[in-house]
Amino acid sequence: MTNNLALRNSFYLIGSIINKYGGAIVTIFSVLIALVSWLYPKGNINIHYVFIISFFSLSIIYILGKSLFLSIRDKSEVPTVRNISTQANGEATEIDVRFFLEPSTVFKRGLLVSIYYKDDSNDMELFIGVGVVEAITEKNIVQVLLRKQSSKLSPEQYLKIITPSAYCLTKYIVKPFLFTD
């Protein structure tokens, strides 16, 4: 795990350097490659072709480096749950449950999400239900409303999971909802 983090940090460093100084690096190296190839030729190659080929090659490397930087910087990890709010909705059997998530670029307003609870006894994820991203605050906190409870959970299990005294926020997992046939 530590090696992966060190590798990720080194790629981030390389990507950030390319992102910040990439245009200048591409230009300087293109000119240097063209000059070296022209001064020490191995054949009859026109300097214009060497410059053009080296410029486009380094431009591709620059684009790939910038893409690497952006993909690592905007990592698409599932955000953690910050808080849960429960509120009775008219009838005693209906409870509105809202999950407040860390800021994330993965979630957008109106997106369907699936909500799970990590059970410590068997290290499984229990499906709680399907929700929808209701709002994203000014501080980019994602607010998810649980819309449909899982039919596999008994009412006792469901109440235990959503009761504020019975939960630990790190046990909740909210993921973008995927449809299956």
Rank of each mutant, 00 (worst) to 15 (best):
I60T: 14
R82P: 00
T80C: 07
N46H: 15
S67M: 09
G65P: 05
I60C: 03
R73P: 01
I63F: 09
S57L: 12
K42Q: 15
S59E: 08
V78S: 07
F56G: 04
F56W: 04
P41N: 13
K75E: 13
I61M: 10
K42L: 13
K42D: 15
I45S: 10
Y62F: 08
I72P: 03
D74I: 02
W38D: 09
S37Y: 14
L39T: 12
Y62T: 00
S57V: 09
Y40K: 11
S67F: 03
I61G: 03
I45D: 09
K75D: 11
T80K: 14
L35H: 01
E77T: 05
I72G: 02
I72V: 11
F69R: 01
S54R: 02
V36R: 06
I45R: 08
D74A: 03
S37R: 13
Y62I: 00
L70F: 04
G65W: 02
G65N: 05
F51C: 06
I52D: 05
E77M: 02
P41G: 09
I72K: 04
I63W: 07
H48Y: 15
I72E: 14
S37A: 14
K66Y: 02
I47Y: 10
R73T: 07
Y62Q: 07
L64K: 00
L70C: 05
Y62S: 02
V36F: 13
P41A: 09
E77Y: 13
L35Y: 01
S37F: 13
G65K: 01
N46G: 10
Y49A: 08
Y49G: 11
R82G: 00
K42S: 13
F55H: 05
L68R: 02
T80E: 15
Y49M: 07
P79W: 00
D74S: 10
S76E: 14
Y49R: 08
R73V: 04
F51K: 05
R73M: 02
E77H: 12
R82F: 01
G43F: 07
I63Y: 08
G65V: 07
K42W: 10
L64M: 07
S59P: 01
Y40A: 10
H48M: 12
K42T: 15
I53N: 04
V81H: 03
S57H: 06
S67L: 10
